[in-house]
Design a protein around this nucleic acid. Structure first.
Lengths: 251, 251
DNA sequence: TTGGAATATTGATATAGATCAATGTTCTAC
DNA sequence: GTAGAACATTGATCTATATCAATATTCCAA
């Protein structure tokens, strides 16, 4: 796992770095798969089409929904990347979370009936849509559907817990390393390249998510790079030493 | 809402400060209420008793369950307070979250089938227990039960999101203020005294949760106190200026 | 009730990281 | 392809907060 590059500051030329906008997660690696499967059990094509609609395209900077918009649908990212954004009272921008191919979003809106944050596409993206309110039409298949949803939500709770933990960590370099581990593990779980990828978000996005200054993100990246743990060229990223990254992240 | 105390550093003598161990949340203020209600719809007493068991007592420092223990039950805190604890690779203690009367816990274990953290009683506590695996016995009432659970989990996702946000905030005093707002709003939502209460956790617990040094927690409390926003005597807490607290928390 | 242990406060110092500033690089729209 | 804007890096400085240390307070068990 160690860095064998002669040029630690450049990406290995042989390594492919494809943006997420050009990669689709396979259905069976998607967090919504269990739900789609259950919905499909009814073998009622019309119902299935009412319940699930596939691949809505979103150009970069397009908003999937705005904060406080009424909740109707749960989404899953098919390709690309999105972010939940908002601002505090003083107008300071905050990033609440990122969503990558295979991730579900909108689950936190079920309770209140309104989306809790504006969600924006960081790059060209596409999403699948699940019309939550149509679930009762599944009749006898309802319970299985809900069980699947509960599984997905439980998993999501784990992710949130994990990311809380990431934020509570003290040193900025640790936080950034933990963030990279998070990206890496997400991509791996979704069957996407996880050691060489293109970051869909700006340094400012990362800073606003991790609660640190943009300049500090930059410096921490440089530091990780000097240690030979990652190689960066702008947003193109290659992870050369996963163990070293875990070590720094304190995991 | 401003501090009208002549002695800003002492609690108002008239104010009652009762530990959470001596207060029970009313069922209709509990996050599990919807679930208990749905379970009760079957009017099958034997089934209800299999599904829900009430008030298991826990002495201080007792563990409700350990990390990686197999999941069977969802819990709700009836009285007292608990914390999810663990440590990172270097043995540094971490607090992942606190649970107060009316809060549910164990939801994050549904997905993996194992509890994700050790949960320990911070003071004498009691919990209700819901045997998740018995839910299918509810038959036709299953769907309603699951819908309630989904509501509860969605709400929990919001809480987690909120607490992430709290941790991502930069200044330590801001973080601590946001933490106090969180406590305050939780207690209020559960129908418990929310302007005068006894903290069930140590300064170290707070520090390990917020990712700061224990000494900094202490100093930040002192600072909030000097500003007349809160009055503290050890763990006895009185909030004198909610608006000021919100202001500092940046909310 | 009291003594010892756990918990909390406060001070002094060192340092990580925010902020200000200047420059370089990479996108994107035309 | 090119120009302008957005994004990223790096340096210098200053401040917030971690750390070390000493003392005070509170809690709990005998």
């Amino acid at each position: 796992m160690n860095d064998l590059n002669i040029f630690p500051n450049s990406l290995d030329a042989a390594v492919q770095v494809t943006p997420l906008s050009q990669q689709e997660v396979a259905c069976d690696h998607c967090a919504m798969f269990g739900l789609c499967e259950e919905a499909g059990l009814s073998r009622d094509t019309a119902l299935l089409e009412q319940l699930v609609s596939r691949r809505t395209a979103l150009p970069r900077t397009a908003e999937l929904f705005q904060k406080d918009a009424p909740f109707h649908d749960i989404y899953a990212v098919k390709s690309g990347a999105l972010a939940a954004v908002g601002e505090d009272e003083k107008g300071k921008r905050k990033v609440f979370g990122f969503y990558f191919p295979g991730d579900m979003l909108g689950l936190d809106a079920i309770n209140s009936g309104h989306y809790q944050n504006t969600v924006v596409a960081l790059e060209k993206s596409s999403v699948c849509r699940l019309h939550y309110e149509s679930a009762p039409l599944l009749g006898e298949y309802q319970a299985g559907f809900y069980q699947q949803l509960i599984q997905a939500m439980s998993h999501r709770l784990n992710c949130e817990r994990w990311s809380s933990q990431l934020l509570a960590t003290q040193s900025t370099e640790q936080r950034l390393a933990a963030f990279m581990v998070y990206l890496c593990s997400q991509f791996k779980a979704r069957g996407l390249p996880h050691l060489a990828f293109r970051l869909p978000m700006t340094r400012r996005d990362i800073a606003d998510y991790l609660g640190m200054a943009m300049e500090t993100v930059s410096r921490s990246f440089s530091s990780l790079q000097k240690k030979g743990i990652v190689a960066l060229q702008g947003r193109n990223t290659q992870i050369n030493d996963v163990d070293g990254l875990l070590e720094i992240a304190g995991l």
